[in-house]
Amino acid sequence: MDVQLKRGLLDVCVLSVLKDGESYGYKIIADLSEHIVISESTLYPILKRLEQGKFVTTRTAEHNGRLRKYYMITQKGKQKIEEFLQDIDEFFKVYDFIRRQN
């Protein structure tokens, strides 16, 4: 899959996971792994980007005597999912057009 396309797609995938409730790195990968391939090193820049763009907020909580960073979706993050879905609708119209010609 095209790198840029996959990057944008993964951003929304992560947001979509967080829409179900706060989560942390390892679990995000586990939840996504049945739908799309994502590695630990791929997730890191995504989470960082989403945090910097204020699409998610974070909190650090203790878990089994160590710290774990939890990610929560913001209103802006939810809006990004909506925008993505609208874009995809338009995308599919173009897709249908292209398919018709082939």
């Binding site: 942390y24 790195g25 390892y26 679990k27 590695s39 630990e40 090193s41 890191y44 989470l47 089994n64 160590r66 710290l67 774990r68 960073k69």
Partner: peptide, 26 residues
């Protein structure tokens, strides 16, 4: 560093083998 430390700790907590898990991190 804390991202990867957390990732490894969570992996081990879920029963992954340390060396194997670290190998999958690349």
């Amino acid at each position: 560093i804390s991202y990867y430390k957390e990732m490894i700790a969570d992996g081990l907590e879920c029963g992954a083998d340390e060396e194997e898990f670290v190998f999958t991190l690349g």
